[in-house]
Design a protein around this nucleic acid. Structure first.
Ligand SMILES: [Mn+2]
Ligand SMILES: [Mn+2]
Ligand SMILES: [Zn+2]
Ligand SMILES: [Zn+2]
Lengths: 146, 146
DNA sequence: TTATTATATTGTAATCATTACAAGTTAGTA
DNA sequence: TACTAACTTGTAATGATTACAATATAATAA
């Protein structure tokens, strides 16, 4: 996966979405932080750099980018929406301990869902939940230290 | 897919979850309505029958049932949590027009996600979004009637 | 059956994420 | 440099979910 910032700008121009300072900063943040951040994380991450930034703007910007197809929404927990600059076909794993969201390669189209013949499919999502490798290592170290 | 009410009751007993009137009604609702209902739909559907029912109880009950593994949460939109009495491995399709959620068979385990080796996986989810067959038929009929 | 008590239910208030709105600002254009 | 549609901002509103404390009840044993 590789997201080229310049391509995103061209994409915005071609869709007549203005390249405001705030939008560019949000886009920049997303291309530099592949952590599937929440609105709060984006807002806090940019606040030093753009002190006048409003959280409403972060919401508005993300909604525009999602509508334009440049950003993908990740709904895993019902109380935290996350955003992904990588719109390619891939899966997500959320660790219930450290709360990190990992990407993993998976070809969703290889599935045969014949029950959905004649259904128009816009969007495919896969996510798993569990405990990541690192958290398992950490917890076994803690136990052996007792 | 087949959910046997009596089995659910045994499952609750074995976990020392009391078979209160309200819980039985919520469970009954879910086994009779395979529509992946929201809390509001469950509450409204039961309110005539159980006039004293509190929405808080519906929330509490569903949380208990989810914790016990008898019910599955479906997070597709960030503003509506839905509940599924069918906890077997299957996918969901949400129609963006009629808002219905359809089930479809899919064997998630047939994927090879070797990047997740050594990850403990508790839960696997797949959902698609688009327009269902019926809604496409409906909209083409409307157009041809012009 | 009755008494006991841990657990569940209820109504209300609190919380938190997201959106609505209106006033002020700015990107893009000529 | 001026114009204006589109954007940003702060605040208020909304809506889903949870916290809490008082009341009620399911399960158990006498
Ligand atoms: Mn991702
Ligand atoms: Mn289902
Ligand atoms: Zn982890
Ligand atoms: Zn439909």
């Amino acid at each position: 996966m590789k997201v080229i910032y310049a391509d995103l700008l061209n994409e915005l121009k071609s869709r007549n979405i203005r390249l405001s300072h705030q939008r560019l900063k949000v886009l920049e943040y997303l291309t530099k932080n592949y952590t599937h951040p929440t609105v709060d994380q984006i807002y806090n991450g940019l606040h030093q750099d753009v002190p006048t930034l409003s959280k409403t703007t972060v919401y508005n910007t993300l909604n525009s980018l999602v509508d334009a197809g440049l950003v993908r929404v990740i709904n895993i927990e019902d109380n935290e929406t996350r955003y992904d600059i990588d719109t390619d076909n891939h899966g997500h794993f959320k660790c219930e301990k450290c709360r990190k969201i990992y990407d993993f390669k998976i070809n969703i189209d290889s599935f045969d869902a014949h029950e959905l013949d004649h259904f128009k499919i816009f969007d495919k999502n896969i996510y798993f939940k569990g405990i990541c490798r690192q958290c398992q290592i950490d917890s076994s170290n803690i136990q052996s230290n007792n």
